[in-house]
């Protein structure tokens, strides 16, 4: 048990005084790939936000432990600096800061030391190339005027640059977007290769998972995890949907 990276115990989460998640238990070991699936409205995105400490979500019971530490009450930025990354479905525009400078600032906060500009630029460049992004993006204001696809790429880019121990990718909206799926797939592959961190992928469509080596699959229905199994569950869901879990 002490080997687990992320340990969620009996977690209950409220939004606007309504309980969305009930008694969630989930454990992710270092380097593992977990998938959280479920029908619309199950509460999947809520879990990602709750782990990260979004103020709109209240944890009313249970705990979240990361790397052996109880981080349930920790502030969001501390959680990030400990090594958790959450990609956003709708990343927010921040005019006046370039994507490049923003990432560099975040890295400096995390490592607590200044990063040589030249080193940084090199790393950025290669990450941009891997994701097939135009190098100009580094100079554009963070998310400003970015199309949906560009926002997705920028989020994955940040994941690659920040090198978290656990990356939570909320792909509930990506389902049928071919480009998004491609970007995320490339990103995951690079992440596994370069960082070797754990992944928690939240989705209700299985397209993203095709080429992945998945360790565990959890199904979330009406705020409860109804089953946990291995990769074979994905095919089952592909063929039969979520019917039998409802």
């Amino acid at each position: 048990m002490s080997a687990s990276l992320l340990e969620i115990k009996d977690l209950c989460v409220n939004v606007d005084e309504k309980e969305i998640l009930h008694d969630i238990n989930l454990s992710v070991n270092p380097g593992e790939v977990h998938v959280l699936m479920g029908p619309n409205g199950a509460g999947k995105s809520t879990l990602g936000f709750a782990i990260m400490g979004n103020p709109r979500y209240t944890i009313t019971n249970g705990s979240v432990c990361f790397d052996g530490e109880d981080i349930t009450e920790e502030s969001t930025d501390k959680k990030a600096n400990k090594g958790i990354y959450l990609s956003f479905q709708n990343p927010i525009e921040v005019p006046g800061i370039s994507l490049g400078n923003f990432i560099r600032n975040a890295l400096e906060r995390k490592t607590e030391k200044k990063i040589r500009l030249w080193d940084f630029k090199k790393k950025m460049k290669s990450a941009l190339e891997v994701l097939q992004m135009n190098p100009e993006y580094a100079d554009r204001d963070l998310n400003v005027g970015f199309s949906g696809g560009e926002k997705k790429k920028a989020e994955i880019l940040q994941m690659l640059m920040l090198k978290p121990k656990l990356a939570i990718l909320d792909e509930t909206d990506s389902g049928l977007d071919v480009d998004a799926v491609k970007t995320v797939s490339i990103g995951i592959e690079e992440y596994k290769k370069e960082v070797g961190g754990a992944l928690l992928i939240i989705t209700h469509s299985t397209r993203i998972l095709d080429a992945l080596d998945v360790d565990k699959v959890h199904v979330l229905v009406d705020g409860k995890i109804v089953t946990t199994s291995d990769k074979s569950l994905i095919e089952d869901i592909n063929e039969n949907g979520f019917e039998r879990f409802l």
Binding site: G53, A80, P95, G96, I97, A106, R109, L162
Partner: peptide, 25 residues
């Protein structure tokens, strides 16, 4: 605030950064 914190930036730092971003814009 949540978005920026989730990238590891502390609250006070975020305020400094946003103030700078604004005027730079």
């Amino acid at each position: 605030m949540f978005y920026l914190q989730s990238r590891g930036l502390a609250k006070e730092y975020i305020y400094e950064m946003m103030a700078e971003a604004r005027i730079k814009y």
